[in-house]
Design a protein around this nucleic acid. Structure first.
Lengths: 215, 215, 215, 215
DNA sequence: AATGAATGAGTTTTCATTCAT
DNA sequence: TATGAATGAAAACTCATTCAT
């Protein structure tokens, strides 16, 4: 393969990748904003600035695009999780890191929250069908399990904490505030969108988690 | 108005109520199951066993019916809340009652969870527009506030607990498990639907809350 | 049911029937003219002078409409067949009647020929799926079989004529001329559309069949 | 032009021919299987194992390719006809040969039958437009005419047989069985695909034709 | 001669809503 | 109060064709 060809291939493949990426990003926005049913194929294409048919060319149909969006979202999350390295920290550090990461990730990836909300309305049928997502085993639970045991053995943490229950609680505390922000704001007749509110929430969650783990 | 006519009127009005009710129940199911966008007017009418046009006759359009469904759901919740009478209990009793009620209500009213999920996708626009829902002030927060203060004063609870933060945490812990049950099951490759799982979750939430409040 | 109601019912049902009928006739024309794939749903609706969606309301989709068209065509044919009463005729009369009927029916129902042509392109998948058509057992073959036996026994006809082969030959001779009229005209560079040509063909077929049956 | 270049050119031209041929064969299959409207340009290209754009490069567009397919089919048929040499045979031999050839050609070239069927749905517009096909005058009719006259003069055949009517009858008997095989099978609820059925049909046609011609 | 990317115009289908009775 | 028939607007999706290399 000479330089000329190589250049060509790179360009073509880069174009393909960038077009698919543009579509994926546009779709993520549209799906997060309006849900699978509310999203418009036209809307996604025009957001991406490409012809609508390319969407079908690359992804097959609207639903498959939705799956691709979910998959990309999970790939991104798992990648970030891997960079945590909880195993190298002392128990309290590890918990603090995990809680901070969970909250901040959700806080900065509201689209992910919206997508998950919608996916739950659809009974997680797309995630269940996705081999990609099933293949992305999260090691977070194992790491957490190890940290909880370590902390207990060192006399720092409460004993016999079920890691799944604990993880669900952590996720709940971080996720719900964002996923239900609109209804909470409406019901409490109060704006919960602000940075101060968010910071207060973050702090509260730390206290909550800490109180539970502390002996 | 003679007896004959009165009887007829009564019958008619009872029929009206029952038809509206049938539609409302059917709509609740359909909306909870498929979301506002996924729900079908035809589906609702056929679930209710009535002609589609009646839906328009009674509720105006699909979106207004959705609002009516949300309103009915909130009316029901507020009514149940009123029956709690936290004010007559000692602080720990009150908290225990509140936690149990919150968990159990959500556990037994999954449709409400689904509706809220969907309403959040729509940025709570229907709730915000509904005067009915706005008018249904929940006294729970006030009661909780009073209970937390009482408990603190009596030296039972942690001091200066923000009732809103606390309430959101409580709601989070109860709500998320049910709202995200499908995706959680898929990701953990585990069935979280069972009664045992539910009971474990309930117990865990009690521990969590208690640990936080306890001095 | 009072007179008023009866009138209403009649009218409603007559409207439904007439609308369905209009659609069916329009679809028959369009499908015969352009084939299943070439036909346009819009074209059918506008030919019928009704809203396009009614087509979906009454028939489900384009393909089901095509099946309905085929079914109607077969129902019509079978009905005509029943009126022949070959059983009451002497053998030669019966054959003459059958041949004349077959030729004339095809000659006057060119749409049926076109539909069958197209259905064969689709490997008869719609006919195979149609319970209605399967249920319309043609008694023609039984009658023909009986006639052939009778004729043979009376010493009028050739013996041991296979009724199916004979029937296929008869159908061939009548059908092909019409089904392939366009290509025949093109290849022979001759107009085969005229009434004279048709009459000549009819006569020829009689001679052909007669020569075969005659001892 | 040096040897090297010549070799290249030869190779290129052979490739061209083979690519065109591959496309033509693939198109023949696809068109025969699904008709002009049902055939997919993508399907043809992928059957041929080449890029879709090449189809346009070589044939202009889908419809022109269809014409090319028809033309190739007629070229093939005419070539085979030429090899018959009916003129060298005695009348009965010639008829026997013609009938056998007609039946066998159709039996072995089902795609041709399917293409003709579809072309008739399109009112033979492509054949009518094709100068190539018009230029391929079939001498069969002239030969047949001569044979019929010869047979009649020799006292072997019925007199004054119209060669076109006779030819159409022959074609009918052979063609219809194959062109309508699917619907016939469906209606008779019987499999007419088998070799035995085919052989029976062939024999029957011989009897039929013979009976007609015989004095 | 060959290819992958991109597109426009069309086609089927869906669905909330209204009409007429 | 209740219903079946009818509709308009929009949605997803298809497909032949062309572009750029």
């Amino acid at each position: 393969m000479n330089r000329q060809q190589k250049k060509q291939d790179e360009k073509v493949s880069r174009n393909t990748r960038s077009t698919k990426l543009k579509l994926l990003k546009a779709a993520t926005k549209e799906f997060a904003d309006k849900g699978l049913n509310g999203a418009r194929v036209d809307g996604i294409a025009s957001r991406a600035g490409v012809n609508k048919q390319l969407l079908y060319y690359y992804f097959g149909d609207k639903e498959k695009l939705f799956v691709a969006v979910l998959e990309a979202a999970y790939v991104k999350l798992r990648k970030k999780e891997k960079e945590l390295h909880l195993e190298d920290m002392n128990p309290w550090q590890a918990i603090e890191t995990l809680v901070g990461f969970t909250f901040d990730y959700i806080a900065h990836n509201r689209q992910f929250v919206a997508l998950l909300n919608d996916e739950n309305i659809h009974h997680a049928q797309h995630i269940k069908r996705s081999k990609t997502i099933k293949g992305l085993h999260s090691k977070l639970l194992e790491l957490l399990s190890e940290v909880l045991k370590r902390g207990a053995k060192e006399g720092l943490f409460r004993k016999n904490v079920d890691p799944i229950e604990f993880y669900i609680s952590l996720a709940s505390l971080c996720y719900f505030f964002f996923s239900n922000n609109h209804t909470l704001s409406a019901i409490f007749a109060r704006n919960l969108t602000g940075a101060a509110q968010k910071e207060a929430r973050r702090k509260h969650i730390f206290e909550f988690i800490t109180a539970y783990l502390k002996i």
